[in-house]
């Protein structure tokens, strides 16, 4: 059941991205930046966490979850340390995406050549 909803919710978020490509004629950079901001906003209103509970990877794999977990990390730290936590807690929960992209980027650069 979880797999089904991961498929549907994840797929629908991608369709939103595709519509931004095709109808609003946005570049991938603009589209993804907007989606991240939307993810952050949704978490600000407490709406993204229920979506993760419902759809699992369908909500955590799309880039929107990056914005969500940035806010989440910041809020968690802010609960403990006040305003300064907003800054210090930002990457508390999202380090893995950026870290692995950097590491595999480096390994990729060592192992591969562009195929063209």
């Amino acid at each position: 059941m979880m797999f089904f909803w991961a498929f549907v919710v994840g797929g629908l978020i991608c369709v939103i991205g595709q519509l931004m490509f095709d109808i609003l004629k946005l570049t991938p950079g603009h589209t993804l930046s907007i989606l991240v901001v939307i993810g952050a906003l949704l978490d600000g209103f407490g709406l993204y966490e229920p979506l993760i509970d419902f759809a699992g990877a369908g909500a955590t794999v799309p880039i929107t979850s990056f914005g969500n977990s940035l806010v989440h990390g910041a809020m968690q730290e802010a609960d403990q340390h006040g305003l300064i936590g907003v800054v210090t807690g930002m990457f508390e929960m999202t380090s893995s995406g950026i870290t692995s992209a950097i590491i595999f980027g480096m390994i990729g650069a060592i192992l591969f050549k562009p195929k063209g």
């Binding site: 991608c14 991205g17 799309p62």
Partner: peptide, 8 residues
């Protein structure tokens, strides 16, 4: 298209 761009 977005199907491979939007996921992480």
């Amino acid at each position: 298209g977005a199907g491979s761009a939007v996921p992480v």
